[in-house]
C-alpha cells in the first residue's frame, strides 16, 4: 500500500519540492491563483510568471457532479496555459479528469464526503493527475479489484453492453501513458494518470493512442 501524497510544500516521492500555487483547502472555486505579496510601490508590481519548479495544485470538492463543469474548465485552462501539450490534449485531459472524478463520485465517496483532484507537473515533459476518493461510496472497490475491472474491459473482445463502463477503459486508458490505482490508508483509492510529451504521436491529431502498446496499467 502506498502512503498518501505529501501535503503541499512537503518533499515529493522523488525528493523534489513542490511549489504551491494554492493552498489545499476545500472548494471547487480554487483555481490556483496565487495571492500576490504586498507591494510597496508601483514599480514593484509583481509579474505573474510560470514557476520553474514542479507545480502541484490540489482541489477538494464535494461528492457532487454539480461541480464538474468547473473542474473541466480549470483543467482546460491549466493544460493550455501551463504545459506544452497541444490544444487537442487540453480537451483530452478535460475528459480524463471528468471520467476519473465521476468514478470517484459515483463509486468511491458517499454524498456529503469529498474527492480530491491533484495536478502535478514535475517538468515540462509530463503531467500527472491524481483523483482520490474517501472510500465511503456505495460500491466499495479496492485497487486490485479496480485494476482487474479495467484490465477486463481493455480486452479487444470485451463487449460494452450498458450505458456505463467506457470511461476508464475506453477514454482514460487511451489518452494516458500510465494508469495506476493505489489503496489509501483512509480506505479510499487514488487513481493516478501520467502523460508524457515525448509520445511520438503527440502532435498527430489523427492518431488514436488507444492502440499504443506502451500503455501501462498498474496496481500499488
Amino acid at each position: 500500500m502506498e502512503t498518501q501524497l505529501p501535503t503541499t510544500s512537503a518533499p515529493l516521492p522523488n525528493g523534489e519540492q513542490t511549489t504551491p500555487i494554492a493552498p489545499a483547502t476545500s472548494g471547487a472555486s480554487e483555481t490556483g491563483a496565487a495571492t500576490p505579496p504586498p507591494v510597496s510601490s508601483p514599480e514593484a508590481l509583481p509579474v505573474a510568471q510560470k514557476p520553474a519548479e514542479p507545480v502541484k495544485i490540489t482541489i477538494t470538492l464535494p461528492t457532487n457532479a454539480y461541480f464538474m463543469s468547473g473542474i473541466r474548465d480549470f483543467t482546460l485552462a491549466l493544460i493550455k496555459n501551463m504545459t506544452k501539450f497541444p490544444e487537442q490534449w487540453a480537451y483530452r485531459f478535460q475528459s480524463v479528469v471528468d471520467e476519473l472524478c465521476n468514478n470517484a463520485i459515483e463509486h468511491g465517496s458517499a454524498p456529503g464526503k469529498e474527492i480530491t483532484v491533484i495536478f502535478l507537473q514535475n517538468d515540462e515533459k509530463s503531467v500527472q493527475i491524481m483523483v482520490e476518493d474517501s472510500g465511503t461510496g456505495k460500491d466499495k472497490f479496492n485497487a486490485a479489484q479496480l485494476h482487474e475491472l479495467v484490465a477486463q474491459r481493455l480486452q479487444p473482445d470485451y463487449a460494452f453492453s450498458g450505458i456505463r463502463g467506457r470511461g476508464l477503459a475506453k477514454i482514460v486508458s487511451a489518452w494516458t501513458d500510465e494508469l495506476t490505482f493505489t489503496d489509501l490508508p483512509t480506505g479510499g483509492i487514488r487513481a493516478t494518470i501520467t502523460k508524457r510529451l515525448d509520445d511520438p504521436k503527440m502532435n498527430d491529431p489523427t492518431a488514436l493512442p488507444s492502440t499504443d502498446p506502451t500503455h501501462v496499467l498498474l496496481t500499488n
Partner: peptide, 13 residues
C-alpha cells in the same frame, strides 16, 4: 461543447 462517457453510452443505446 462536451460529452462524457455516459452520454456516449446513451447514444449507443
Amino acid at each position: 461543447e462536451y460529452m462524457n462517457s455516459k452520454s456516449i453510452g446513451y447514444l449507443t443505446d
